[in-house]
Design a protein around this nucleic acid. Sequence first.
RNA 1: UAAAGCAGUCGGAUAAUCGCGCCUAAUAAAAGGUGAGGAAAGUCCGUGCAUCCAAGGACAGACCGCCGGAGAAACUCCGGGCAGCGUGAGCUGGCGGAUAGGACCACAGAAAUGGAUGCGAAGCCGGUAUGAGUGCCGUUGCGUGGUUGCAACAGCAAACAAGCAACGCACGAAAUACUACGAUUCCACCGUUACGAAAUGAGCGUAAGCGAAUGAAGUGUAGCAAUCUAUGAUUGCACAGGCGGAAUUAAGGCUAAUCGCAGAGACUGCCGAUGGAUUGUAAAAUCACAGGCGAUGGUGCAACGGUGAGUUAAGAGCUUCACCAGCGAUAUCGGAAGGUAUCGGCUAGGCAACCCCCGGUCGGAUGCAAGAUUGAUGCAAGCGUUUGAGGUGUCCGCCGAGCUUGGAAAAAUCGCUUGAGAUUAGGAGUAAUCCUAAUACCAGAUAGAUGAUUAUCAAGGAAUUUUUUCCUGAACAGAACACGGCUUAUGAACUGCUUUAUUCU
RNA 2: GCGGGGGUAAUUCAGUGGUAGAAUGCCUCCUUGCCAAGGAGGAUGUCGCGAGUUCGAGCCUCGUCUCCCGCU
Length: 114
Amino acid sequence: MLPKEYRLKKRTAFNATYRINNTYYHGGITIFCGKQKDNLNPTKVGFVVSKKIHKRAVKRNRIKRLMREAYRQLIKENKINTKYISIIFVASSKLLEKNFQYIKKTIEILVEKI
RNA sequence: UAAAGCAGUCGGAUAAUCGCGCCUAAUAAAAGGUGAGGAAAGUCCGUGCAUCCAAGGACAGACCGCCGGAGAAACUCCGGGCAGCGUGAGCUGGCGGAUAGGACCACAGAAAUGGAUGCGAAGCCGGUAUGAGUGCCGUUGCGUGGUUGCAACAGCAAACAAGCAACGCACGAAAUACUACGAUUCCACCGUUACGAAAUGAGCGUAAGCGAAUGAAGUGUAGCAAUCUAUGAUUGCACAGGCGGAAUUAAGGCUAAUCGCAGAGACUGCCGAUGGAUUGUAAAAUCACAGGCGAUGGUGCAACGGUGAGUUAAGAGCUUCACCAGCGAUAUCGGAAGGUAUCGGCUAGGCAACCCCCGGUCGGAUGCAAGAUUGAUGCAAGCGUUUGAGGUGUCCGCCGAGCUUGGAAAAAUCGCUUGAGAUUAGGAGUAAUCCUAAUACCAGAUAGAUGAUUAUCAAGGAAUUUUUUCCUGAACAGAACACGGCUUAUGAACUGCUUUAUUCU
RNA sequence: GCGGGGGUAAUUCAGUGGUAGAAUGCCUCCUUGCCAAGGAGGAUGUCGCGAGUUCGAGCCUCGUCUCCCGCU
């Protein structure tokens, strides 16, 4: 789990990020980027796995945790992008059968891309 | 040994690295503690808890439904009864009432619990085509037979006889096709278009509400109107019908032109003891005679108790009998449901997981997005303040100043986890469950923690072989106020008891 | 988390316990030089699934799966 200052929490913040509509896609994950920031606060990140992907909460939580863990390791290795205020990661049903290594790699590619 | 039944167990463990929520303590860092299930799921029941409305009454409504016990309560659990299923261990059960009443029981059937029509006899009516075949002093042809004539070895001609074939005419089984006088059903039009009461609101509906005519609810077809002799009588008019179209039917149809039968069983049937008729010397026989019967056949899920015997002309719960089912009474066993025995009368269709009736229980509504506190925002339109908005399941009644809609804004804290609780030990009880003592405090998130990677092992499987190798190392599934149940999902394996079958001793 | 509504033909929907229907679509034929329109005929169903009540369930009852809507 990420420390609190990295989490994107408010519903309005989510809506604001979606409205900018700056999206990238790779390997089953779509990301929405927010506005470019002008202060030193850390980039806030949200993870979304909708009910359409799987009915059961166990499977959805598993994907969410894997994505979060991958992003946390990237923070530690100092590979993240700090241009934006907020980023949202949206999973698709492709990720159901994938392992941790695959997810980490795709997130790394996406973060380099933006 | 195999196959079953029941009751249970388990739902992994350890270590390393990097992380997250909460608590303790704290300036901060570091540290310590702690962190998902048997179903956390479905939200199907029942509670606590919270808010709103409540003086109460009536009516709805919901739920329950063999007996006893447990439980805060429950579409809950335990034990027993009864019924059904199973060879059995055992399993299943929404298990009050059909003589209070209503609805329904398709098709078939004479008839579905009483619908008004149905059935039998007699009489009348009832197509066309194809067509095996049958018939005809029918016509034509063929060959055969004898006869007559010519000729006479051969042969030719004539009429006759029976036969065969084709054609024609008439009849015509089964089957097929077509049409539809009639019949049945449906539709359209014309005609008819009834009964039923009333402003003191008929009535209908649980209630809100509907409701005087464009005819409520109901009835579902026979009465209605007038008169006087007035609870009846007389008269009149009605209850009809007409026309057209579509479908089905070639089998039956029709009879208000006749006679008879049936108010569970008219059809198919059995009988003909008694009475009658006929035949016969008589014995006896026959009868679509009077009649007796409800057994047989048939229809159907179901036909007015079942099976067998006796009785009888034939028969029948017939009240004569045996067994069974059902109803009632008495005795007895049991705490009760209920069981057992004896006796009596004589039979009640199904359906209440349709309405309903009987007995019982229930203050109602909304759900932690309940609600409380702090802070912020407080705009517009409509309705309303005793001529009453709105609220309480509905009405009576009561409360009484705000309410509704749209837009904007929606942050923090509390509620929040010490409990109908957990673990261990002892006791009561067949059991559900209850009592006593000790021990500890054991998730509390809010875009929502409980995670990622790796190694070893328990456990299981396969191969080789007698200790090695390889594989799997899991299924269903993630708390959101809490608890008690129910239901559903769930990998591999293990334990105990019981039943049945087979083999051996 | 709490509450409510649905599932019937390829699609949209009807359906009083007694033979499963309508419209559109699809297929064949007619019509036309061809197409459309029009006319005639035809096919298409696990009534979401599993049990129960009943002589008999699309309909009644219970369980289950799935879809949709509202409360923020």
